[in-house]
């Protein structure tokens, strides 16, 4: 469609205006879940392309942003699905991530926390943490070392609150497998956050 035609037709979508109006919003939404700026940019682009093609179905029903976010959600899920499929030998990748040894392996207290790895009091509240920009950097860095499948399972569960069934469907795994993945993610993440945020040497938070 040429510029002239578009100007004459008030029903025609204006994708360039979408980028200006909703681009940042969609980008932040995607970035928080995909944790990679290039992937997030691609997701925004794919979303707007799909929106352009499906514009006839939308035709001004409801909020434009809600509609676009709906498409973006699908794009993000597709990405997670792809990650899972591309891990051709899925188990191997996950096993390459070695859990740190948080628990004693021998002696009277085998199976209990090692004193230097044991949880301590965080004196923290979610309400306050949300506001601290630096905390989110630490958080992103802590998610980094996790295998992509484990990280995406964790994000789908804890950020989006998807049900076990939904996540298992996306990643083509069994529910027991999912629980093991979430457990490993939590063990690692909790320790990493404690080390790099709650027990930082400066203690200036």
């Amino acid at each position: 469609m040429s510029q002239e035609q578009r100007a004459k037709d008030p029903q025609a979508p204006d994708p360039s205006a979408w980028v200006d109006e909703h681009g940042d919003y969609l980008y932040r939404y995607a970035l928080f879940r995909l944790r990679d700026s290039a992937l997030a940019e691609d997701a925004v682009q794919e979303t707007l392309l799909a929106a352009l093609q499906a514009y006839a179905n939308f035709a001004g029903r409801g909020s434009e942003r809600t509609w676009l976010v709906g498409i973006l959600k699908h794009k993000i899920t597709d990405h997670f699905r792809r990650i899972s499929r591309e891990a051709s030998v899925p188990q191997r990748e996950d096993e390459a991530f070695v859990d740190e040894n948080f628990f004693r392996t021998e002696g009277e207290w085998a199976g209990h926390w090692r004193a230097e790895q044991a949880p301590s009091d965080w004196h923290a509240s979610p309400v306050a943490l949300v506001e601290q920009g630096e905390f989110w950097l630490v958080f992103q860095n802590c998610l980094g070392p996790l295998p992509p499948r484990i990280a995406s399972a964790f994000v789908m569960r804890e950020v989006d609150g998807l049900t076990s069934e939904e996540i298992c469907e996306v990643l083509s795994i069994k529910v027991n497998n999912l629980w093991v993945m979430l457990h490993r993610a939590r063990l690692h993440l909790r320790h990493c956050l404690e080390l790099n945020w709650f027990k930082r040497p400066t203690d200036a938070h």
């Binding site: 469609m1 578009r6 979508p13 994708p15 360039s16 979408w18 980028v19 681009g23 940042d24 980008y27 932040r28 970035l31 700026s37 940019e41 925004v44 682009q45 707007l48 392309l49 352009l52």
Partner: peptide, 19 residues
């Protein structure tokens, strides 16, 4: 985080060539 100017331009260009 904002969409970088570069990404913004690229996305607009892609959308333009697909419409």
């Amino acid at each position: 985080p904002h969409l970088s100017l570069e990404a913004r331009t690229r996305i607009k260009r892609t959308l333009g060539s697909n419409s």
